[in-house]
Design a protein around this nucleic acid. Structure first.
Length: 345
DNA sequence: AATACGGGGAG
DNA sequence: CTCCCAGTATT
């Protein structure tokens, strides 16, 4: 039996049931908006992390017209905690472009031109939403294919070979199911650390298994240790309880998200003057947060500000829901809660 | 080709 | 702790 047939048969029996997905072998076409939204949320993000957020987002903006009309700050707030905030900014831009042109384009090539749709997402929407016969390659697929064909070339150089291999396997009839089947296989059986080869539909054919190289595929380049960075953040609260916040510039780290004013730690600044006149006190403890490419230590300075304070940076917001803050800022907020200076009025 | 860009789940 | 995840945009 060929690889494609074996994989689809396995998928028909073991497909994960996910809210953005139709059951296997379904004759219906899924809503392109829902497919696109899920694919963007899933970029570098685990299914487990997306699951509780997808339904909430969809309930709030059920179609592309609704999202296109949404205020940007509300979308950013809904995205808080999901990371890679350029995704949310691109999501809005894409929704507006699609609403403008009256719907999603159906080819991989046209989809690729939309904001936030790269090679993977354009291919996945084309295959899953529109039934186009295209190769969908994500991290799971890279692992599965590198193992099945025992590809020793390191990533990312091996991407072209992997893509070509997938392209020869995609069936004309069920390209969307095939893409999702390959990803399910990587997510549930062909896992990085402990692959369940005995359950795998490709067990017999898998070259890495035959050669005993499974755990060494795919070959990845070594990564260097992320550097340490320092910074300062100011948590100010006015006598009426309002918090001093800024909206971070879109071209910066955590761009478009709310945050506490302070040094530009994403640009190497370790200190900065206060964002408003006041009696600022530095907390004994620091706020630590790990990003992909550096680890940040933030000194936190707090102050209770006068009712007529005019901020030099940021502006006062009457209420602050920490759930709408990105992780690093949430840590700062939590630490600031220990200071009596910031207690509710 | 290399780097910036988050956060959380799994082991 | 480390690794990795339904990647994209920029340089």
């Amino acid at each position: 039996m060929d690889l494609t047939r074996a994989l689809l048969d396995w998928y028909d029996r073991h497909a994960r049931r996910l809210p953005w997905r139709l059951p296997p072998a379904s004759r219906e076409r899924p809503d392109p908006y829902r497919v696109w939204l899920a694919e963007v949320m899933l970029q570098q993000t685990t299914v487990a992390a997306v699951l509780p957020r997808y339904g909430r987002f969809l309930a709030r903006w059920p179609d592309v017209a609704a999202l296109a009309a949404a205020p940007e700050a509300e979308v950013m707030a809904e995205w808080a905690g999901l990371g890679y905030y350029a995704r949310a900014r691109n999501l809005i831009a894409c929704a507006r472009a699609v609403a403008e042109r009256g719907g999603f384009p159906e080819t991989e090539e046209e989809l690729r031109t939309l904001p936030g749709l790269g090679a993977y997402t354009a291919a996945s929407v084309a295959a899953i939403a529109f039934g186009q016969q295209v190769a969908v390659v994500d991290g799971n697929v890279e692992r599965v294919i590198a193992r099945a064909f025992d590809i020793a070339t390191p990533l990312p150089q091996a991407r072209r070979t992997i893509r070509d291999r997938v392209a020869t396997l995609v069936p004309a009839g069920r390209p969307g199911d095939f893409a999702q089947a390959l990803m399910d296989l990587g997510a549930t059986l062909c896992t990085p650390r402990r692959p369940a080869c005995v359950l795998c539909p490709w067990c017999e054919a898998c070259l890495a298994r035959r050669h005993g190289t499974t755990l060494q595929r795919p070959v990845k380049p070594p990564r260097k240790a992320p550097p340490e960075r320092l910074g300062v953040a100011y948590v100010g609260r006015r006598s009426d309880g309002a918090w001093l916040l800024e909206t971070r510039a879109p071209d910066r780290m955590l761009g478009g998200m709310p945050g506490f004013p302070g040094s530009a730690w994403d640009r190497g600044e370790e200190d900065a003057p206060p964002p408003a006149p006041g009696d600022w006190q530095e907390l004994a403890q620091t706020a630590r947060h790990s990003f992909t490419h550096f680890t940040l230590t933030l000194r936190v300075r707090v102050a209770r500000l006068d009712g007529d304070t005019t901020p030099l940076q940021g502006s006062f917001v009457p209420a602050l829901d920490p759930a709408t803050l990105p992780g690093a800022m949430r840590r700062v907020w939590e630490l600031a809660q220990t200071s009596p200076l910031l207690a509710d009025p």
